[in-house]
Amino acid sequence: MHSSSRTSTAARRLAAADPAGMIYGAIVSAAAMATVSLHTDQAQRVAIGTGVVLAIYWLADLYVHALSVRFDGDSRGLVRRLVHAAGHKASVLKGGVPTIAAYLVTYVLVRDVSVAAYTALGVTIVLLIIAGYLGARQAGSPERAAVVEGFGAGLLGVLVVVAKSLLH
Score class of each variant (00 low, 15 high):
1 M>Q: 13
2 H>Y: 01
5 S>V: 14
5 S>G: 03
6 R>S: 11
8 S>K: 13
9 T>G: 09
11 A>K: 08
11 A>H: 05
11 A>I: 04
11 A>S: 08
15 A>H: 14
19 P>W: 02
20 A>L: 14
22 M>S: 12
22 M>G: 15
23 I>W: 00
24 Y>W: 11
27 I>A: 11
27 I>K: 03
27 I>F: 03
28 V>L: 09
28 V>P: 00
28 V>D: 04
30 A>V: 02
31 A>N: 03
34 A>V: 05
34 A>L: 09
42 Q>I: 12
42 Q>N: 13
46 V>F: 00
46 V>Q: 09
46 V>C: 07
47 A>K: 03
49 G>R: 10
57 Y>G: 13
59 L>A: 15
60 A>C: 11
61 D>L: 11
62 L>K: 06
64 V>I: 15
68 S>W: 02
68 S>N: 14
70 R>S: 13
71 F>I: 14
71 F>W: 14
71 F>E: 12
73 G>N: 15
73 G>W: 08
74 D>E: 13
75 S>P: 07
75 S>E: 15
79 V>H: 07
81 R>I: 11
81 R>K: 09
85 A>I: 10
88 H>P: 00
88 H>A: 14
89 K>G: 13
89 K>F: 03
91 S>Q: 11
95 G>F: 02
97 V>P: 00
103 Y>T: 11
103 Y>V: 11
105 V>A: 12
105 V>E: 03
107 Y>E: 08
107 Y>T: 07
109 L>P: 09
111 R>I: 06
112 D>V: 05
114 S>G: 09
114 S>C: 00
116 A>E: 00
117 A>N: 02
118 Y>Q: 04
122 G>A: 05
124 T>A: 09
125 I>D: 00
126 V>L: 13
127 L>F: 06
130 I>K: 10
132 G>K: 06
133 Y>I: 04
133 Y>Q: 04
133 Y>N: 05
134 L>E: 02
135 G>N: 14
135 G>Y: 01
136 A>T: 02
138 Q>F: 06
141 S>K: 13
143 E>V: 08
143 E>K: 10
144 R>Y: 03
145 A>N: 07
146 A>H: 09
150 G>Y: 10
151 F>Y: 15
152 G>P: 04
152 G>A: 13
154 G>L: 06
154 G>S: 08
156 L>G: 01
156 L>Q: 05
157 G>C: 06
161 V>I: 15
162 V>Q: 09
163 A>S: 12
166 L>C: 06
167 L>G: 11
